[in-house]
Design a protein around this nucleic acid. Sequence first.
DNA 1: ATGTAGGCTCCCGGCCGACAA
DNA 2: TTGTCGGCCGGGAGCCTACAT
Lengths: 636, 636
Amino acid sequence: MFCKTLTASDTSTHGGFSVPRRAAEDCFPPLDYKQQRPSQELVAKDLHGVEWRFRHIYRGQPRRHLLTTGWSIFISQKNLVSGDAVLFLRGENGELRLGIRRAVRPRNGLPDSIVGNQNSYPSVLSLLANAISTKSMFHVFYSPRASHAEFVIPYQKYVRSIANPVTTGTRFKMRFDRDDSPERSGVVTGISDLDPYGWPNSKWRCLMVRWDEDIGNDHQERVSLWEIDPSVSLPPLSIQSSPRLMKKLRTSLQTTPPNNSITAGGGGFMDFEESVKSSKVLQGQENIGFISPLYGCDTVNRPQDFEMQAPAHPSLALNATQKATIGELMRARHSTYTGFAESDRFPKVLQGQEICPLRSLTGKANFTLGDWESNLGCTSYNIYQAPKPNFFSLASESLPNIYFPYGDIRRAGQDPVMCSNATNLPRENMKINPYSMQMGVARNEVGRPNKPSEHKPQESSSAPPTLVQNPRNPNDEDFNGTVTGCKLFGFSLTGENPTPNSQSSSKRSCTKVHKQGSLVGRAIDLSKLNGYGDLLSELERLFSMEGLLRDSDKGWRILYTDSENDVMVVGDDPWHEFCNVVSKIHIYTQEEVEKMTIGMISDDTQSCLEQAPVMLEMSKSSSVSQPDSSPTVIRV
Amino acid sequence: MFCKTLTASDTSTHGGFSVPRRAAEDCFPPLDYKQQRPSQELVAKDLHGVEWRFRHIYRGQPRRHLLTTGWSIFISQKNLVSGDAVLFLRGENGELRLGIRRAVRPRNGLPDSIVGNQNSYPSVLSLLANAISTKSMFHVFYSPRASHAEFVIPYQKYVRSIANPVTTGTRFKMRFDRDDSPERSGVVTGISDLDPYGWPNSKWRCLMVRWDEDIGNDHQERVSLWEIDPSVSLPPLSIQSSPRLMKKLRTSLQTTPPNNSITAGGGGFMDFEESVKSSKVLQGQENIGFISPLYGCDTVNRPQDFEMQAPAHPSLALNATQKATIGELMRARHSTYTGFAESDRFPKVLQGQEICPLRSLTGKANFTLGDWESNLGCTSYNIYQAPKPNFFSLASESLPNIYFPYGDIRRAGQDPVMCSNATNLPRENMKINPYSMQMGVARNEVGRPNKPSEHKPQESSSAPPTLVQNPRNPNDEDFNGTVTGCKLFGFSLTGENPTPNSQSSSKRSCTKVHKQGSLVGRAIDLSKLNGYGDLLSELERLFSMEGLLRDSDKGWRILYTDSENDVMVVGDDPWHEFCNVVSKIHIYTQEEVEKMTIGMISDDTQSCLEQAPVMLEMSKSSSVSQPDSSPTVIRV
DNA sequence: ATGTAGGCTCCCGGCCGACAA
DNA sequence: TTGTCGGCCGGGAGCCTACAT
């Protein structure tokens, strides 16, 4: 196999593709060099199973390998530009495979007029909401050409970054894409919130760093925990500026130099890179080519990206600017793809390759959306609250009072993303399986709730919405989260209208009880009980769980939401106090409780939203009839 | 002014545009006919103010007027094809104006493989929801090339059709587009629901008709009230088949003949035609060309159409098939359009012309979305319920009991589009003013609520959501419709928590009861009951379930939705508290309750997905950089 | 070894009149 | 009168080698 970054000549309409000699000799079928100008036809399949045919010729003075006929079609169909890369692989059976990896290019900003479109934002939320509420499939799209996916992070990466404490002075390496010295090193000079007001305690870009080399404006001075690798021992610092390197780095950016007010730094390129190595996550991709056997591809696959963006660096409330890109893509249901994915023996070195969501590779990887989700939620909250003069103090005041037994991704009282009883889903299930579940995500500064009561979570926080689905059968029981009462930006994710418990608790003598996984709640009159023992008995009776609750070894846990919307363990408080503050009781499995805790970092992971407006971006692909021009679908 | 339908030669890449002699002499500046081949440059502005330049030459043997240079650019930029029409107008000041009218062409169906995307559907709903909740602008897009807009009907037209009762035997005319006898006549042979189970009392295609001429498969045998014109006195019926006419009709369809399984008939072409005449509604349009002074048009204006579609005529549950097309388009906020619209003195004969949503013409027209919405709602419900064996009988049984004070567009107990307290808005306000308010609409067979409580409207139907906005200032007080609590498929359209019972309980003495599988709810006055025993008796009586509810072994369960939208078991709470908090009562089978526990996807919803795949279609426009290839924005 | 540029060819877009409906 | 066709021309796509790095 070989990979070559395309040159201007390679991608111009003027000529063909210069095949590096070694690559051609290793990878292509041998030519008959006795001929004057030996040539042959190469047939290579891409990830979608589409065959591409090239004329492979060996000619010129000095002799070199070229791909001529067919190449320009490939270039235009795939919408490749200089800087993108192609990859040829030869399977054991001699079959030639072909992949592409697009360069990460900062985009020109789009005008505000198509940005900040609050309409497209709840649209995406609604996708998510509907998917959750109906337990149906949804999509995560990743447009590597458009964004660095700073808000979609491999789950393990995030967890690891949290597990490895970083202190000021820590030396680290950080990988950069498209750089002939792909690793840069630096030292952590400080740890602080990027925006302590808008995003207190956000982990996002909370590290202030000094780079060992002067790498100019292209590198941000703040990075996120998960972007760096502090575990390696680093050589002594050599402060040498490397102009040549810099120049190369800069010129390798094919578009205009990053406009800080828009692109806000180039970090996060490697979000998926690591997972590529560790988890077969693929990066830098083509999207699925939509290939309909019935109707062809020409009018079907329309690139559709939305780009949203907020002005950068507003002075107080919103300042950092980032992009997150989503796209929307059709899902071919029963298409007859015959691409890479069909054979598990296909090398898993597809790093930076196309992905095909319709078939499964064998590997899996987890992404965490926790931070992202939290960000999402908190953003909405913060955005809404920002104008309120008492917001900051209020938030900080109330923070210490919060006890959150499940970790910190969602904090009662902070996070609008609330789920009242989705407890049966383990934290580890907080992964996305792109085989069947993909999610369109968006982040948008302008989306905001319109009623104050909406961003104050009404229900106790218990578990994140679980985003798990069976890859084989999206509709089966794997997705049984009973996710009710979820809200995002004031939109009910479940379509319910959860009303504040204020009305209920005062009116009702009974306390509602929800069991994990059950849509139907029961009610229990605590005043008729004499203590926790009675409670347990009654709960066992109501839910036909005789003997299961009293014995903690049976794996059940009783939690409750108190009047402050905190989720607490039942039994700690004196009984009568408990009765006074309880607003709802939950029955969870032990696993669920534990798993809700896993991977959550300290308090509020709210972060970056404000700083990082979401960019919902259109695909740049210009060709209508090409199968691969849509935003990339991340496959895990 | 003149208008010419483009010929194949006009639109081919081979040549230019043949200008009809009379038209050129009347409309174009005079040429110097003394020259051998007189020519001049014509400059014409389109509705967006974009100037188009053509070389106008008078040559050939015999002499004729031609537009050569510049014409092919225009054709390709506007994505015009043979059958579309161009219109030239000369203003008083001699300024030349240019418009286009696209032909209504049935589209090729799209493969199922890109269908079944339930995600795109709530996306659109969410656009609407957010726009309403934030009182911001939203869009109605109409892609005349893609759909017949059967669900976007001029309001007056709808009202008129309702006002003029049609009986069996009524003779009528109906207009068809692209037909050299544009009017066809027929007789109403029956009036009945197209789908009495899924859409009882729907006006949509409720008329069975027999056409006077045998017009083959191309014409549906069912039409909607508003499609016909019964007011004209018709000549005696002459049953003559007109093969030549038919042939012409058929060949005038530029694409493949309508596939019944996909396009489901060709009616509704004239939805806008009438309003063109009566209300200055414009049809067949270009969309707004997005012209950003900052960034140009090339990457900004992305054609985006969505097309959703369900298979036609499935035997039982879902049979009506139509398309609704939506598109999404960016809105240029403060662009400096200098098109037609800038001068009110511009002739209002823009019938079939481009439209520019940023400026206002003087005319207005109203659209009703009522029937469409009703279909939407009922569809969803129907899908959910369809698989249940007891559905049909139940529905028909209880239908006569329904009292619906507002006519037929929204039926209580049927329509998820509910507004809890928008009662101050008269029915007549159900209009859309596209100057400032445009709405992306979609109709989707597969959208369905996920919880029983959600498809059963919680509130009495009072008034439709009012979709009125001030054309001049979208943000001012004209949009004060107090539109709260609107729900669409369980999504709150307002983003608020309408706290249903608080309002409704004061208004209604009865509590609604829905039985699983039944489209139609009952209401029960709890204040007249003395306890749970009474309740059970009354429920058994209402639903003819004597003995079934009291005995839990019969497999029925009584649940209720409380004021917090939690679903609870009836009987746990003290009776009087129950009465205070209950918002709706549900009768479910034990199995169904268990399903709720396992997961929220019930089997039936899955099967519905399979039955009615949704089609999400991208725009057909092939040029990325053209400003006018997006879906048409309807301007009224 | 390989990126780029110039030369060359061929195809297609596009202007023309011929011809016919 | 005007729709379509063949002829013709020019520009660009695309294959080639030469040259530079």
